[in-house]
Computed example of a mutant assay.
Amino acid sequence: MTVCCQKSLYWPGCWLWGLIVCLTIWASMSSARAQGSCAPVRAPQATLEFNHKDPMLDRHRSVRWLNSRAGGGSKYVVAGLTEYEMQASFDMRIEPREVGLGRYCLDPVRVNPKVNVVKHLVYIASELERGSCEYNAVYAHEGEHVKVNRGMEADIRAALDDLVNDVVGKVGAMFPMPAENVQSAIRRLLSEYGRDFKRRLRDIDRRRREEQRRIDTPEEYQRLSLSCGPNSAFQTVLQQAVR
């Protein structure tokens, strides 16, 4: 808003009046800005509970069982297999904070995602003797799958940091709201960020599966089948056992 005074009016108090109006407008805008800020007064308590499960080796499954478990259909014999499974939950707490004039801001006080690894199994065909060239080759190959699975924790921690920043930024940018809107806003935010956390985990798991597929290539299977010579168990014992 601009207040203009023309000298031709010969009104001595014009400039003083304009100054008062401008100061009033500035004070009103400052008050509105103060009321419109919901920046959190403290950082939320953000903790990630990641419960590991060290990979367990199972050498009691036949190569026939492994091929059935892997879905079959491959022209290569499946002599090793790694299975990984996790479960996740998300706990978030938001509290209202009164800022005056019957209006409230929302403060995220706790962000607590939990990830439990419920299965991490490495199978190596029972037909392979421990310490043999074939056993060591399969063991090393499955070890690459284990590395990918373990590397997911760093990705999940980074996703948590991004999620916390998103929560603080979005909730802090909200305007104060009347008391009757508080509970519905809290439910909406809890639902929204619960879905967001699950989406982030799905994205991480999808990338993990893509990395796993890059390990299991026809070229890698061909290399493994020839790694212990032309008459190794890959071409003899395992081929016979899977029939």
Score class of each variant (00 low, 15 high):
126 S>K: 15
175 F>H: 12
206 R>G: 11
172 G>L: 05
121 L>N: 15
147 K>E: 10
134 E>W: 08
119 K>M: 10
130 R>G: 09
124 I>S: 02
208 R>W: 00
169 G>K: 07
153 E>H: 10
209 R>S: 14
191 S>M: 08
133 C>Y: 12
196 D>W: 01
203 D>V: 10
213 R>F: 13
132 S>H: 02
169 G>I: 02
203 D>N: 14
156 I>G: 07
144 E>L: 08
196 D>F: 05
157 R>Q: 14
148 V>T: 07
196 D>A: 11
168 V>M: 06
174 M>F: 02
155 D>I: 00
206 R>H: 15
146 V>W: 02
124 I>W: 00
178 P>I: 00
178 P>A: 04
132 S>I: 02
171 V>A: 05
182 V>S: 13
182 V>R: 11
147 K>H: 03
147 K>W: 01
130 R>C: 06
184 S>L: 11
151 G>H: 04
176 P>L: 05
173 A>I: 03
147 K>I: 03
208 R>Y: 03
211 E>T: 05
190 L>V: 03
120 H>M: 04
179 A>M: 03
121 L>H: 13
150 R>T: 07
206 R>E: 06
188 R>S: 03
123 Y>W: 03
176 P>C: 08
188 R>D: 04
172 G>C: 13
162 D>I: 06
156 I>C: 07
184 S>G: 00
177 M>D: 04
206 R>W: 08
150 R>A: 13
148 V>G: 11
155 D>Q: 07
122 V>R: 12
207 R>N: 07
167 V>G: 10
126 S>G: 06
163 L>Q: 12
157 R>E: 02
129 E>Q: 14
162 D>G: 12
167 V>A: 11
120 H>K: 15
179 A>D: 07
196 D>I: 01
211 E>Q: 13
143 G>I: 05
155 D>V: 00
139 Y>C: 11
159 A>H: 00
170 K>G: 04
167 V>L: 03
163 L>C: 14
169 G>R: 06
179 A>G: 09
131 G>N: 12
124 I>K: 01
198 K>A: 10
164 V>E: 12
189 L>D: 01
191 S>R: 14
172 G>E: 00
155 D>F: 09
205 D>M: 14
160 L>G: 09
131 G>V: 05
205 D>R: 11
175 F>K: 14
160 L>K: 13
